[in-house]
């Protein structure tokens, strides 16, 4: 049985949120404005997305699906770069982040859609957009966390890296400990998601499907399939992002090129 929510149900939920905000006001905790604003944003965003998707699903056009997908990829590539402690100069950041999330997402999404939906109608928006979106979200998270680990440590470890280069090490041997740590940091979220699945958290897709009336075991199977794909996309995107960035932060003469980061101060001699 699927329970469709009525406006009355939603108003009840709003009342609950207002109670929390009221508590903040009453106890001078100071977050009531922020909470009300966040709730309004959330409502507007989700209703907009819901209406947009309804429109897109009615059109059922592969071209439109691809267009929406490209917009999502662009936004994700931007978000990966937006939260880094230091950034690559020029267009490289966008190029590398875009390539990392796109390559992993497109490959894994195509795999998912072709297996689940069959080759004929794999761009059917009702499946393609949510599945692509989940995969993209994971790719974005992993690339972002991996690059954060790489870029916040590479400056501190400059002496150690250059000592290895000066002793005749190649750029990849000198940077490999850092790269390993960065990629590992990037896949922590997908690892946590997998080990915690069902014990600590009920995964979103599974809960959603159960709420929408699916048999729990079917829902679990669906979740298993998706989680394995998410692990693949998170891993691929963390690896791509870290390797591409390290390529750009070193050169063919095996030099460390931190001058290609923004805000880098050169050492004085």
């Amino acid at each position: 049985m699927v329970i469709a929510l009525t406006p009355v149900d939603l108003v009840t939920a709003v009342a609950l949120m207002l109670t929390s905000a009221g508590l903040s006001l009453f106890l001078s905790l100071g977050f009531h404005k922020g909470m009300v604003w966040a709730s309004i944003r959330m409502v507007v965003q989700l209703l907009l997305v819901g209406s947009l998707l309804r429109l897109v699903f009615r059109q059922d056009s592969a071209a439109l699906t691809v267009l929406i997908f490209l917009a999502m990829l662009t936004a994700a590539a931007h978000e990966v770069g937006a939260r880094q402690p230091r950034r690559l100069q020029g267009g490289w950041r966008h190029l590398i982040n875009g390539a990392a999330v796109s390559m992993s997402t497109i490959f894994v999404s195509a795999f998912a859609l072709v297996t689940v939906l069959g080759a004929d109608n794999w761009l059917e928006p009702a499946h393609a957009i949510p599945i692509g979106g989940i995969i993209l979200g994971t790719a974005m998270n992993s690339a972002s966390i991996a690059l954060n680990a790489l870029l916040s440590n590479i400056g501190n470890e400059r002496d150690a890296i250059e000592a290895q280069l000066a002793l005749g090490g190649s750029r990849f041997s000198a940077l490999s400990p850092l790269m390993r740590r960065a990629v590992n940091a990037g896949i922590i979220p997908v690892m946590n998601q997998m080990v915690g699945a069902g014990i600590i958290t009920m995964p979103g897709i599974m809960s959603g499907q159960i709420l929408a009336g699916q048999d729990p075991l079917n829902a679990a199977t669906y979740q298993v399939f998706l989680m394995l794909l998410l692990a693949a996309s998170g891993t691929a995107s963390a690896i791509f992002a870290v390797y591409f960035t390290v390529f750009r932060l070193s050169d063919e003469r095996h030099r460390l090129r931190l001058d290609r980061l923004e805000d880098e101060r050169r050492p004085k001699g």
Binding site: D159, I161, E162, A163, Q164, A166, L167, R253, R255
Partner: peptide, 18 residues
Amino acid sequence: APEWRRRVMYVASNSGWW
């Protein structure tokens, strides 16, 4: 470059350790 640096070796004033 790695071979060049094994023959012409730079020792920085701040030594790096990994």
